[in-house]
Amino acid sequence: MFNYSFRWNQAFQSLPDMLQGALVTLEVAVLSMILGILFAILLTSFRLSGNRVLRGITTTWVEVARNTPALFQIYMAFFGLAGLGIAITGWTQPHLGFAVDLRLSPYVALLAGITFNNAGYLHENFRGALKAIPDTQTRSARSLGMSAPQAFGYVVMPQMLRISFLPMTNQFVWAILMTSLGAVISMNSDLFGVTDNLVKINFRTFEMFAIAAVIFYVMTKIVTLSARLIAARLFRY
């Protein structure tokens, strides 16, 4: 039964490539997180704006992001938008004389998909956090002469980010794990993509994926631990 010969040496030779991939994974995760937070704040302000159309945009975005698989969202960013792109290409071609390929590159599609997902979940975190901040905070800020944006920006938002810091860390870990989904849209520079490609060359499937798993585990541990340290430093009071 156990006649499988492990060849860890062969697998370890590709460690530099995989670490390079880990950097790309981290890069995508960080970018999607930053964009996700910005979009989530935008969605929150849409929801609070009272405008029906803007509120509808928020609801649709959040519900779709939370009720469909992340894989589907990434597919949609890649193939779905390309489907639209093909239609537009066909339309512009005769007039302009060249094809406009609107298909996103895998990197951008992955980033867009994860950002979409992040924004949806982060919006819910922000909503919960906003509920925990008493209304009197806004009112006292306003009565001190702050304008509404000032009150939101200087008084409410810092508290909101503080309350939702831990859920945000969780979401960041999720974003790191989600980058592995890039494989389905032929993204080959992130950790999973690099591993998958190397496996096709050296066939050390088990060893390679085991190393990738360890790298992912270490990465998420570093992120959670450093987030805890940052939280202890930032929120001393």
Binding site: S180, T205, F206, A213
Partner: peptide, 24 residues
């Protein structure tokens, strides 16, 4: 904790490789 910190895609690939290639 490991099950929560490693992407599901890798868990699946790893488990499948382990069962079919290592344990045969």
């Amino acid at each position: 904790d490991v099950c929560r910190s490693v992407p599901l895609l890798i868990q699946l690939s790893l488990a499948f490789a382990f069962v079919t290639a290592v344990l045969k």
